[in-house]
Structure formats: C-alpha cells, structure tokens
Write a protein that binds this DNA or RNA. Structure first.
Length: 458
RNA sequence: GGCCCCAUCGUCUAAUGGUUAGGACAGCGCUCUUUCAAGGCGUAAAUACGGGUUCGAUUCCCGUUGGGGCCA
C-alpha cells in the first residue's frame, strides 16, 4: 500500500514538551486515526549541544500520558548516513555545489541587500568552480512559481528566485534543517505534513530540495500558532505551559486534550464543548481548522478540568487524586483516604487543591456557638435539641441519610442540616453535611456533634 | 529590510452572499438550595479601517492599518 496515510511530529529535544507540541501531536494523531494511518514520533536531535536525553524522555512520557501513542519512533541522529548519501547524490549530479564564501562575506552581502531593500539571498558564483570546502548549497535555477497546496489555507505562492542558492549542509556529515527534514519525511514515507505555521516559509525550500532529489511531495497543512498573552509565539520564556507543568499542577489529561483541541478547531454547536478524545477524533476535520493564531488562556482549561473531573467515575477520581495527597496527610487519614477524596473532589478545580481541601475538613477550627444557629431562626435550646436527636438517631453511617430524612421531615431542612454542617466542619462554608459525615466516619462525627452540644451548654 | 501568513465579543470560536451576527469560558444580575461551588434563567460584549463587486457583504476583490512568522 503506497498511499497509506502516514504523519509525524518532529520535536527537537531542547526543552520540556509544551502544549503547542501537544496540540500538533493531537491533530496529527487524530488525522492518522481517522484514516487508519500511522503516527510517527521523530526526535530531531541533530543539534548535539542543545539536545538532551531528559527532554526526549519528557516528550515520550507526556505523549503517552496524554494517550497519544505513536506507532513508530526514531531519532534523526540515527539517520545521518542517509543524509550523507543524499547529499553526495546531489553533489555528484551537480545539483548541489560547495560554496566557499566565509560567514563574514555572507554577512556583508546580507547587510548590503538589506540596505538596498533587496530580498536576502545568496546567488553563489562558486557554483561551477569545483571547490570542496565551505558549505553545501542547492543550485537553484527555478523560475516558475512554487505553489504550496495547503489543506487549511489553500494555495500559497512563492517566487523561487527570492531564495537564492539554498544552504543544505555545513559539510558532508552536518546537514542543515531544511535538507534533513525533507530527506527524513520522504524516507519515512510521510504522506501529510501537519505542523505549525512557523514552518510555512520553510516549505517552498523543502519542495525545491525534494524535487532535486526526485522525491514525491507530501500534502501540507499548517496550523495556526499558539500565542502568549502578548500575542507572540508561545515559548518557554513568555509563560508557555509545558505539558509536565500542567500535569503537576493538577490538570487531568482529558481536560488538556479537550482544551488544546479547542485551540484552532471547534465542534458543532449541538454537541457542546466538553468532549472526550474519542468524540473529538470522530468530529475533527483538519480542513476546517482555524487560520489565525490562538492565545492560550487557561481560564477555560480550569473549567474543562472541573467538568472532566466531575465526569470521572468515583473509583477513577480516587485513583487520579491519590498521588496528589501528601505523605503526611495520608498517614493522618489512613484508611479514610478514599472517603475524604470523594467528599472533596466535586468542588475542586485542580488536583493540587486536594490537600488543602481535605485539611480544612480534618482541622476543625474553633467556632462560636452562635454559628450553630441557622439564620437566627432557631435558638440555642432548639439547636441543642436537634443535635441531640441526631446523636441518638444516627448510629450507623450507612443509614444516616434515612435517619436525617425523617428528622428533616419533622424539623425542616435548614434547622437540621445547618447545625450539623457547623458541628462537623466548624465553618459556614464546607462540603455538604452528608459528604462530611461519610468522610469523617461515625465516631469522629459523633464526637464533633458532642462538642457542639457542649458549646451550646456553655 | 525581503517574502509569507493572519484579522468576528476580553478569550476560544460559529456563520463559506441574505441570521435580530450564534455558542462556550470569563464578567455581571436574578433564581434554586442547608453554606460555598455547581445548576437554572437572564444580561452586557465583536465583524480593524477605506474603497469596490453585488439587489444584498462577516463572507468575494483591492488598498490601508495592525499582529504574527521565516530568512539573514
């Protein structure tokens, strides 16, 4: 099968994986899934000085965590011989040549062109002198317009004369970016190149290089960039979020996937915006992607995180929350960890808030007896009477809600639940009395009610 | 500096010649409720500007402005 869909992401391991990379990965992954194709991960590690194993590991780990598993993996550095072979091919066929101009000379030329408002390009007079030092360039004689047929943007036209002789490699074993990408993509039989808009200008050069090598041209799609608040390209410096940071600050994978999918693409109104990966993949259409850059604003991420947490089944909630609970706290609540998590989960935005939320239940503050009096509508005597009824009625946590229901029927909702809430939490603001009851357990709950009664006596 | 891309509420976006310019988040208000949150209901908020084309432009064309990217 020659026409199998094959896509890739090609991050360089020079920093922690940021959400822009994740978004490109997601769109590629979905495109592959939709067409029963393959999704490749290529680590662009040719820059030895800046590439680090740590970052490569981070990319692999977070891609997996997000659920965007790749079908094939390779490192660019492992393909160097292949780059050299192709470089030689070009040199031998006289399609490439050595340019021996010094960096200094090139800089001066660029400066002059700039001053004269000419396009910055180097048309080299070393083309046919047969030197074998300097850098390797492509002999660029193209005059016909190069048209990129972009799946998102339509036709983009370039005049190839504006590029001059494109640089390919520093030497026979040190190829440059555009050359490497072209060779690797062809080699991996990439059918569709889906990448960020920052690569649009590289595309015509890659097309030219591909043509010289006799390669078939892939389809192109250039995604809008993710922008920081100041509208510049999102990067580590201007507050760009890394996927690892998001995870550590308590965003769950479903929320992150949903959030980045909405940056540059939008589902039909009818199905809403809170969606899982499967649904997004089903609905996604690359040709309908947005063309303008998108500012990353985490307010919506917060909302999506809450929504997705709420949608998780209870046992799953416990599973994802547990790693966020500190060792000290775990020791303190031991066997009741699950119950505390369940009590607190529906009202938190990020998983990192869970420690504080649980602590606020455990550490009951000192409070004034008057707080027990619901909206001033019951007096101390009544409050005490109700709390004593609660104490005698609730003898089993499993049937607590039934006992409370009958008491509420007699006394009213507020008069019963308010003093109970305050007794159990010491606060006017807290999870519901029911949730507190289940979290604290019968013994602790009863102890707290007794304290409340004694306060009313005082 | 050259070339390329882009332009709808604060933000993410829908509407590919005919809509009271729609939705979501955030904001504000009301409401429900045992508190808070959530929920429900409501409200405010946008087609950058100027020319065309057309019976009719958010939509097509040109220009301006603005933003972004790549190159060196």
């Amino acid at each position: 099968m020659n026409n199998k869909i094959r896509v890739r992401i090609a991050p360089s391991p020079t920093g922690f994986m940021h959400i822009g990379t994740a978004r490109t990965a997601l769109f590629n992954w979905m495109f592959a899934k939709q067409h029963n194709g393959a999704f490749l991960l290529r680590i662009e590690d040719t820059d030895k000085d800046r590439s680090k194993k740590e970052f490569e590991d981070d990319i692999i780990k977070n891609l997996a965590w997000l659920g965007l598993e790749h079908d094939e993996f390779y490192r660019q550095s492992e393909h160097i011989e292949n780059h050299t072979v192709n470089l030689k091919k070009l040199l031998d066929s006289n399609k490439a040549f050595w340019c021996a101009h010094t960096i200094k000379e090139l800089e001066i030329e660029a400066e002059q062109q700039r001053a004269a408002k000419e396009p910055p390009r180097h048309i080299c007079e070393h083309r046919d002198i047969g030197r074998t030092d300097g850098i390797i360039r492509l002999r660029n004689d193209a005059t016909d317009s190069i048209v990129i047929n972009d799946m998102i943007r339509g036709d983009i036209t370039y005049d190839p004369r504006l590029f001059g002789d494109i640089s390919l490699a520093k030497n026979i074993s040190e190829p440059l970016y555009n050359f490497v990408v072209t060779v690797d993509d062809f080699d991996a039989k990439i059918s569709h190149v889906i990448r960020g808009e920052d690569h649009i200008t590289n595309t015509p050069k890659q097309i030219l290089i591909g043509r010289a090598l006799g390669f078939s041209e892939p389809m192109w799609a250039h995604l809008p960039l993710l922008l920081a608040k100041d509208r510049t390209k999102l990067s580590k410096r201007n507050g760009g979020l890394s996927v690892g940071d998001c995870r550590e600050s308590g965003y769950i994978r479903e929320a992150i996937i949903n959030f980045i999918a909405l940056l540059g693409w939008h589902p039909k109104d009818e199905i809403g915006e809170v969606l899982d990966l499967e649904t997004i993949t089903k609905e996604f259409d690359i040709t309908r992607a947005q063309r303008g850059g998108a500012i990353v604003d985490t307010e919506k991420l917060d909302w999506l995180n809450r929504e997705h947490i709420k949608r998780l089944p209870p046992d799953e909630q416990i599973k994802i929350a547990e790693p966020f609970i500190s060792a000290d706290l775990k020791k303190q609540i031991e066997s009741r960890v699950d119950k505390y998590i369940s009590a607190v989960m529906p009202r938190i935005t990020k998983l990192t808030e869970i420690n504080a939320a649980i602590k606020s239940i455990i550490d009951i503050p000192e409070y004034n007896a008057d707080l027990l009096l619901w909206k001033g509508k019951i007096d101390r005597i009544k409050a005490k009477e109700i709390l004593e009824s609660i104490l005698s009625d609730i003898t089993d946590i499993e049937t607590a809600d039934v006992s409370l229901a009958s008491l509420i029927k007699k006394e009213g909702t507020g008069p019963v639940l308010w003093p109970l809430r305050v007794s159990l939490s010491g606060n006017a603001i807290s999870p519901s009395p029911y949730e507190l009851l289940y979290a604290l357990g019968l013994d602790e709950a009863r102890a707290r009610v007794r304290i409340a009664i004694s306060k009313l006596d005082a």
